[in-house]
């Protein structure tokens, strides 16, 4: 695909829509979670206020260069992931900067943020951050494995590394979705999805009640606001990848909103039903239940 300057404002528009959708969606998910606990939950616009509040904090302290760069890396991971995969299939306007072979780049971006975070949180020197990072990285790494396997299975199945082509191959009816043509890969990927959403049962890393809030212990004011921004972009970007690979992509914004909501809802649904795993339990869980599925998916293809 050739590069044109108009793609930049188009991608920024995508980013804008996704940020707003993400802010509302995250609040909505929290609200649904609260309703399960018979609470009212936060107002739906609360995320906007929190964000504004954090940007308006007057003082902030730093622990060094990497401490600055941590949230920036993380945001880069989220935005990069979003910009390099097509958001709306077949639309010139919202296919962003995708190109052939973007699948590998997407995989890389998914991990990029965690690494930046690890370095930044490590520099803050707070013991809770260090423990949080080591726990987070081990959990994310094991939960990424089944996803990587599933992605390879899908790439083998369609004989391409371009997300666009994979989506194109799934058009023309629900039965063409990877969900039905390669259910094993989808199952492995969805299990891995649970692990990367930082919701129960796999949220021991970021849970406020555990070693206080893990990696971001020392982050505050604008740093935290940057990370919050990423917290709404990154899950959506990740779900866009899932939607494209496994659920036939989206041809218009309403379909996009609906599919993202349902994928997110899947992790929320599991989250409110099951209690939290400890890190070593979740690592074992991923290796025992999700990994074989991923390997089987590759073998079947």
């Amino acid at each position: 695909m050739s590069f044109e300057w108009i793609m930049i404002p188009y991608s920024l528009l995508t980013l804008f829509i996704v940020i707003n959708y993400g802010l509302l969606l995250t609040a909505l998910m929290q609200k649904i979670g609260a309703r399960v606990g018979r609470r009212h939950g936060i107002p739906i616009w609360q995320n906007y206020i929190d964000l504004l509040k954090n940007y308006s904090i007057r003082s902030s302290i730093t622990h060094g260069v990497m401490f600055y760069l941590g949230p920036v890396f993380r945001l880069t991971g989220g935005v990069g992931l979003l910009l390099f995969v097509p958001t709306i299939f077949g639309s010139e306007m919202f296919s962003n900067l995708s190109f052939a072979g973007d699948l590998i780049l997407a995989l890389y971006f998914i991990f990029f943020g965690s690494l930046g975070m690890a370095l930044g949180a490590g520099e803050s020197g707070h013991p809770h951050s260090a423990i949080g990072v080591s726990r987070g990285l081990s959990q994310v790494t094991t939960s990424e494995l089944p996803f990587a396997l599933a992605v390879f299975a899908v790439a083998l199945q369609y004989q391409t590394l371009s997300v666009n082509d994979i989506v194109a191959a799934q058009q023309g009816g629900v039965m063409n979705w990877t969900l039905f043509t390669n259910p094993l890969a989808v199952a492995a990927a969805m299990l891995s999805f649970l692990g990367s959403m930082m919701r129960p049962p796999f949220d021991v890393v970021l849970a406020p009640q555990e070693i206080p809030i893990g990696p971001p212990t020392e982050y505050h004011s604008s740093y935290l606001a940057l990370m919050q921004t990423n917290r709404v972009i990154f899950p959506i970007a990740k779900m866009v990848v899932y939607m494209n690979l496994f659920f036939g992509g989206a041809a218009s914004w309403p379909v996009f909103f609906l599919k993202i909501f349902l994928i997110y809802f899947f992790s929320l649904f599991i989250g409110v039903v099951f209690p939290r795993f400890r890190v070593e339990q979740s690592v074992r869980w991923f290796l025992i239940w999700a990994m074989p599925l991923g390997i089987a998916a590759i073998l079947v293809v």
């Binding site: 609260a34 606990g37 018979r38 609470r39 009212h40 939950g41 936060i42 107002p43 609360q46 206020i49 809770h128 406020p208 009640q209 206080p212 809030i213 971001p216 212990t217 020392e218 982050y219 505050h220 935290l224």
Partner: peptide
């Protein structure tokens, strides 16, 4: 908890003084 639920009013608890 459900009975009083301060989250409705934008009040949340944070585990670290920084935030």
């Amino acid at each position: 908890t459900p009975r009083f639920d301060a989250y409705r009013y934008g009040i949340q608890w944070r585990p670290t003084p920084r935030q």
